[in-house]
Protein backbone atom coordinates (compact mmCIF):
# COMPACT_ATOMS: atom_id res chain seq x y z
CA UNK A 1 0.00 0.00 0.00
CA UNK A 2 2.69 2.39 1.09
CA UNK A 3 4.75 1.41 -1.90
CA UNK A 4 1.86 2.08 -4.26
CA UNK A 5 1.48 5.55 -2.80
CA UNK A 6 5.20 6.20 -3.19
CA UNK A 7 4.98 5.09 -6.80
CA UNK A 8 2.08 7.40 -7.40
CA UNK A 9 3.98 10.38 -6.02
CA UNK A 10 7.06 9.48 -7.99
CA UNK A 11 5.01 9.38 -11.20
CA UNK A 12 3.39 12.69 -10.39
CA UNK A 13 6.79 14.23 -9.71
CA UNK A 14 8.02 13.16 -13.12
CA UNK A 15 4.86 14.06 -15.04
CA UNK A 16 3.41 17.01 -13.18
CA UNK A 17 -0.16 17.87 -14.15
CA UNK A 18 -0.38 21.36 -12.71
CA UNK A 19 2.79 22.77 -11.17
CA UNK A 20 5.87 23.90 -13.01
CA UNK A 21 7.12 24.48 -16.51
CA UNK A 22 6.55 20.94 -17.65
CA UNK A 23 3.00 20.51 -16.45
CA UNK A 24 0.62 18.77 -18.83
CA UNK A 25 -2.96 18.99 -17.60
CA UNK A 26 -5.04 16.33 -19.31
CA UNK A 27 -8.24 17.04 -21.17
CA UNK A 28 -10.60 16.72 -18.21
CA UNK A 29 -8.30 18.56 -15.84
CA UNK A 30 -8.10 21.37 -18.38
CA UNK A 31 -11.86 21.73 -18.35
CA UNK A 32 -11.96 21.54 -14.59
CA UNK A 33 -9.24 24.15 -14.16
CA UNK A 34 -11.01 26.49 -16.56
CA UNK A 35 -14.19 26.27 -14.49
CA UNK A 36 -12.51 26.92 -11.14
CA UNK A 37 -12.38 30.75 -11.26
CA UNK A 38 -16.01 30.87 -12.41
CA UNK A 39 -17.05 28.61 -9.56
CA UNK A 40 -15.13 30.76 -7.08
CA UNK A 41 -16.75 33.96 -8.33
CA UNK A 42 -20.26 32.52 -8.25
CA UNK A 43 -19.77 30.98 -4.81
CA UNK A 44 -18.38 34.14 -3.29
CA UNK A 45 -21.32 36.07 -4.69
CA UNK A 46 -23.91 33.55 -3.49
CA UNK A 47 -22.44 33.36 -0.01
CA UNK A 48 -22.13 37.14 0.34
CA UNK A 49 -25.64 37.62 -0.97
CA UNK A 50 -27.00 34.99 1.37
CA UNK A 51 -25.35 36.58 4.40
CA UNK A 52 -26.58 40.04 3.54
CA UNK A 53 -30.11 38.92 2.74
CA UNK A 54 -30.37 37.05 6.03
CA UNK A 55 -29.56 40.24 7.87
CA UNK A 56 -31.82 42.39 5.75
CA UNK A 57 -34.24 40.79 3.27
CA UNK A 58 -34.70 44.15 1.47
CA UNK A 59 -31.02 44.61 0.72
CA UNK A 60 -30.83 45.56 -3.00
CA UNK A 61 -27.21 45.38 -3.94
CA UNK A 62 -26.66 41.61 -3.83
CA UNK A 63 -29.94 40.16 -5.13
CA UNK A 64 -30.49 36.42 -4.88
CA UNK A 65 -30.70 34.24 -7.95
CA UNK A 66 -34.45 33.95 -7.44
CA UNK A 67 -34.80 37.70 -7.39
CA UNK A 68 -32.82 38.07 -10.61
CA UNK A 69 -34.81 35.32 -12.28
CA UNK A 70 -38.04 37.10 -11.41
CA UNK A 71 -36.74 40.39 -12.77
CA UNK A 72 -35.63 38.73 -16.00
CA UNK A 73 -38.97 36.94 -16.35
CA UNK A 74 -40.72 40.23 -16.05
CA UNK A 75 -38.47 41.83 -18.68
CA UNK A 76 -38.97 38.91 -21.03
CA UNK A 77 -42.74 38.82 -20.67
CA UNK A 78 -43.58 42.48 -20.23
CA UNK A 79 -44.46 44.70 -23.14
CA UNK A 80 -43.04 48.17 -23.22
CA UNK A 81 -45.85 50.59 -22.48
CA UNK A 82 -44.85 52.97 -25.21
CA UNK A 83 -43.88 50.65 -28.09
CA UNK A 84 -45.70 47.44 -27.25
CA UNK A 85 -42.57 45.31 -27.70
CA UNK A 86 -41.13 42.86 -25.20
CA UNK A 87 -38.47 44.77 -23.33
CA UNK A 88 -35.57 42.32 -23.16
CA UNK A 89 -36.00 41.17 -26.74
CA UNK A 90 -36.28 44.69 -28.02
CA UNK A 91 -33.26 45.87 -26.06
CA UNK A 92 -31.18 43.00 -27.41
CA UNK A 93 -32.28 43.40 -31.01
CA UNK A 94 -31.75 47.16 -31.03
CA UNK A 95 -28.29 46.88 -29.57
CA UNK A 96 -27.30 44.09 -31.91
CA UNK A 97 -28.60 46.01 -34.91
CA UNK A 98 -26.58 49.09 -33.99
CA UNK A 99 -23.50 47.03 -33.27
CA UNK A 100 -23.87 45.06 -36.51
CA UNK A 101 -24.38 48.14 -38.65
CA UNK A 102 -21.50 50.01 -37.06
CA UNK A 103 -19.10 47.08 -37.35
CA UNK A 104 -20.17 46.24 -40.90
CA UNK A 105 -19.60 49.80 -42.06
CA UNK A 106 -16.30 49.97 -40.21
CA UNK A 107 -15.11 46.65 -41.62
CA UNK A 108 -16.01 47.62 -45.19
CA UNK A 109 -14.24 50.96 -44.93
CA UNK A 110 -11.26 49.35 -43.23
CA UNK A 111 -11.01 46.84 -46.03
CA UNK A 112 -11.20 49.49 -48.73
CA UNK A 113 -8.77 51.87 -47.02
CA UNK A 114 -6.33 49.25 -45.81
CA UNK A 115 -6.24 47.33 -49.06
CA UNK A 116 -5.59 50.37 -51.21
CA UNK A 117 -3.10 51.84 -48.77
CA UNK A 118 -1.27 48.55 -48.67
CA UNK A 119 -1.10 48.19 -52.45
CA UNK A 120 -0.82 51.68 -53.92
CA UNK A 121 2.04 53.85 -52.61
CA UNK A 122 0.32 57.01 -53.84
CA UNK A 123 -2.89 56.20 -51.99
CA UNK A 124 -0.82 55.32 -48.93
CA UNK A 125 1.04 58.64 -48.99
CA UNK A 126 -2.29 60.45 -49.32
CA UNK A 127 -4.32 58.74 -46.62
CA UNK A 128 -2.13 56.77 -44.21
CA UNK A 129 -1.00 59.71 -42.04
CA UNK A 130 -4.59 60.99 -41.90
CA UNK A 131 -5.91 57.58 -40.91
CA UNK A 132 -3.30 57.36 -38.16
CA UNK A 133 -4.37 60.79 -36.92
CA UNK A 134 -8.04 59.78 -36.88
CA UNK A 135 -7.26 56.56 -35.05
CA UNK A 136 -5.82 58.53 -32.12
CA UNK A 137 -8.77 60.90 -31.69
CA UNK A 138 -10.62 59.57 -28.61
CA UNK A 139 -14.12 58.69 -29.88
CA UNK A 140 -15.87 59.33 -26.58
CA UNK A 141 -14.40 62.81 -26.41
CA UNK A 142 -16.13 63.74 -29.65
CA UNK A 143 -19.43 62.14 -28.66
CA UNK A 144 -20.89 65.57 -27.78
CA UNK A 145 -19.95 66.80 -31.25
CA UNK A 146 -21.53 63.74 -32.79
CA UNK A 147 -24.69 64.28 -30.76
CA UNK A 148 -24.94 67.78 -32.17
CA UNK A 149 -24.13 66.65 -35.69
CA UNK A 150 -26.26 63.50 -35.90
CA UNK A 151 -28.97 64.14 -33.31
CA UNK A 152 -30.02 61.61 -30.73
CA UNK A 153 -31.39 59.02 -33.13
CA UNK A 154 -30.00 55.75 -34.43
CA UNK A 155 -27.33 57.34 -36.61
CA UNK A 156 -25.22 58.65 -33.78
CA UNK A 157 -24.74 55.23 -32.19
CA UNK A 158 -23.72 53.63 -35.46
CA UNK A 159 -21.41 56.54 -36.22
CA UNK A 160 -19.75 56.32 -32.82
CA UNK A 161 -19.02 52.61 -33.26
CA UNK A 162 -17.78 53.30 -36.77
CA UNK A 163 -15.47 56.11 -35.70
CA UNK A 164 -14.24 54.13 -32.76
CA UNK A 165 -13.18 51.04 -34.71
CA UNK A 166 -12.74 51.74 -38.44
CA UNK A 167 -9.36 53.48 -38.34
CA UNK A 168 -7.59 50.96 -36.20
CA UNK A 169 -8.97 48.13 -38.30
CA UNK A 170 -7.87 49.82 -41.52
CA UNK A 171 -4.33 50.20 -40.14
CA UNK A 172 -4.43 46.52 -39.30
CA UNK A 173 -5.52 45.55 -42.81
CA UNK A 174 -2.91 47.88 -44.25
CA UNK A 175 -0.19 46.16 -42.22
CA UNK A 176 -1.41 42.74 -43.32
CA UNK A 177 -1.33 43.84 -46.96
CA UNK A 178 2.18 45.28 -46.57
CA UNK A 179 3.42 42.12 -44.92
CA UNK A 180 2.57 39.94 -47.91
CA UNK A 181 5.70 38.77 -49.71
CA UNK A 182 6.52 41.06 -52.61
CA UNK A 183 6.99 37.90 -54.67
CA UNK A 184 3.23 37.39 -54.67
CA UNK A 185 2.68 40.64 -56.51
CA UNK A 186 5.50 40.17 -59.00
CA UNK A 187 4.32 36.65 -59.62
CA UNK A 188 0.77 37.83 -60.29
CA UNK A 189 2.08 40.35 -62.81
CA UNK A 190 3.98 37.61 -64.64
CA UNK A 191 0.71 35.66 -64.68
CA UNK A 192 -0.95 38.53 -66.50
CA UNK A 193 -2.76 40.27 -63.65
CA UNK A 194 -3.94 43.84 -64.08
CA UNK A 195 -3.28 46.27 -61.18
CA UNK A 196 -6.83 45.75 -59.95
CA UNK A 197 -6.38 42.02 -60.42
CA UNK A 198 -3.40 42.15 -58.09
CA UNK A 199 -5.35 44.06 -55.46
CA UNK A 200 -8.62 42.17 -55.57
CA UNK A 201 -7.58 38.65 -56.54
CA UNK A 202 -4.19 38.31 -54.88
CA UNK A 203 -4.05 40.68 -51.93
CA UNK A 204 -7.75 40.84 -51.00
CA UNK A 205 -8.22 37.11 -50.32
CA UNK A 206 -5.11 37.11 -48.16
CA UNK A 207 -6.07 40.08 -45.96
CA UNK A 208 -9.66 38.87 -45.42
CA UNK A 209 -8.76 36.56 -42.52
CA UNK A 210 -6.78 39.37 -40.91
CA UNK A 211 -9.79 41.66 -41.27
CA UNK A 212 -11.96 39.12 -39.47
CA UNK A 213 -9.42 38.84 -36.67
CA UNK A 214 -9.40 42.58 -36.51
CA UNK A 215 -13.20 42.64 -36.23
CA UNK A 216 -12.96 40.14 -33.38
CA UNK A 217 -10.52 42.34 -31.53
CA UNK A 218 -12.59 45.45 -32.18
CA UNK A 219 -15.80 43.93 -30.83
CA UNK A 220 -14.74 44.85 -27.28
CA UNK A 221 -14.29 48.56 -28.01
CA UNK A 222 -17.42 48.47 -30.18
CA UNK A 223 -19.54 47.32 -27.21
CA UNK A 224 -17.98 50.04 -25.12
CA UNK A 225 -18.96 52.73 -27.61
CA UNK A 226 -22.41 51.25 -28.04
CA UNK A 227 -23.13 51.25 -24.31
CA UNK A 228 -21.79 54.77 -23.96
CA UNK A 229 -23.93 56.06 -26.81
CA UNK A 230 -27.01 54.29 -25.50
CA UNK A 231 -26.43 55.70 -22.04
CA UNK A 232 -26.51 59.19 -23.49
CA UNK A 233 -29.24 59.01 -26.05
CA UNK A 234 -31.62 56.12 -26.61
CA UNK A 235 -35.07 54.89 -25.82
CA UNK A 236 -34.21 51.21 -25.84
CA UNK A 237 -31.13 48.99 -25.91
CA UNK A 238 -29.06 47.02 -23.45
CA UNK A 239 -26.92 49.98 -22.43
CA UNK A 240 -29.94 52.22 -22.15
CA UNK A 241 -31.69 49.77 -19.81
CA UNK A 242 -28.66 49.39 -17.56
CA UNK A 243 -28.28 53.12 -17.16
CA UNK A 244 -32.03 53.56 -16.73
CA UNK A 245 -32.44 51.11 -13.88
CA UNK A 246 -29.23 52.33 -12.27
CA UNK A 247 -31.38 55.16 -10.90
CA UNK A 248 -33.39 52.60 -8.92
CA UNK A 249 -30.25 50.67 -8.06
CA UNK A 250 -31.89 47.62 -9.58
CA UNK A 251 -29.00 45.19 -9.40
CA UNK A 252 -31.43 42.34 -10.16
CA UNK A 253 -31.74 43.77 -13.68
CA UNK A 254 -28.21 45.06 -14.14
CA UNK A 255 -26.45 41.79 -13.33
CA UNK A 256 -28.46 39.65 -15.80
CA UNK A 257 -27.98 42.33 -18.46
CA UNK A 258 -24.21 42.32 -17.93
CA UNK A 259 -24.25 38.54 -18.25
CA UNK A 260 -26.32 38.79 -21.42
CA UNK A 261 -23.92 41.31 -22.98
CA UNK A 262 -20.97 39.12 -22.07
CA UNK A 263 -22.68 36.14 -23.61
CA UNK A 264 -23.47 38.02 -26.83
CA UNK A 265 -19.86 39.16 -27.10
CA UNK A 266 -18.64 35.64 -26.54
CA UNK A 267 -21.07 34.24 -29.12
CA UNK A 268 -20.05 36.79 -31.76
CA UNK A 269 -16.40 35.99 -31.18
CA UNK A 270 -17.04 32.27 -31.38
CA UNK A 271 -19.01 32.63 -34.61
CA UNK A 272 -16.25 34.62 -36.28
CA UNK A 273 -13.58 32.22 -35.09
CA UNK A 274 -15.50 29.20 -36.35
CA UNK A 275 -16.15 30.89 -39.68
CA UNK A 276 -12.42 31.56 -40.07
CA UNK A 277 -11.44 27.98 -39.27
CA UNK A 278 -13.87 26.80 -41.90
CA UNK A 279 -13.23 29.38 -44.59
CA UNK A 280 -9.50 30.04 -44.27
CA UNK A 281 -7.82 26.80 -43.18
CA UNK A 282 -4.55 27.87 -44.82
CA UNK A 283 -4.35 31.08 -42.79
CA UNK A 284 -3.39 29.40 -39.53
CA UNK A 285 -0.61 27.40 -41.18
CA UNK A 286 0.84 30.41 -42.97
CA UNK A 287 0.64 32.58 -39.86
CA UNK A 288 2.44 30.06 -37.70
CA UNK A 289 5.25 29.33 -40.16
Amino acid sequence: MREKLMNFWERRRRNPCFWGLHAGPGRYLNWFLALVPFAVLVSVYLIASDIRLKENPDYKYLPSVMKMAEAVKELVATEDLRTGHYILLQDTLSSLRRLGMGMALAALSALFLGLNQGCFPGFRALLLPFTKFLSIVPPLAILPILLVAFGVHETVKVVLIFIGTAWVMSLDVHLAACKLPKEHITKALTLGASPLGVVYRVVFPQVMPRLIESVRLSLGPAWLFLLAAEAFAASEGLGYRIYLVRRYQAMDVIIPYVLLITFLGFAADWLLRTYMRWKYPWYFVVRES
Binding site: H184, Q206, W282
Partner: peptide
Protein backbone atom coordinates in the same frame (compact mmCIF):
# COMPACT_ATOMS: atom_id res chain seq x y z
CA UNK B 1 12.69 29.57 -53.91
CA UNK B 2 9.55 30.22 -51.88
CA UNK B 3 6.37 32.29 -52.12
CA UNK B 4 5.78 31.19 -55.71
CA UNK B 5 2.42 29.73 -54.75
CA UNK B 6 -0.62 31.44 -53.33
CA UNK B 7 -1.48 29.87 -49.98
CA UNK B 8 -5.22 30.52 -50.38
Amino acid sequence: QQYSLYPF
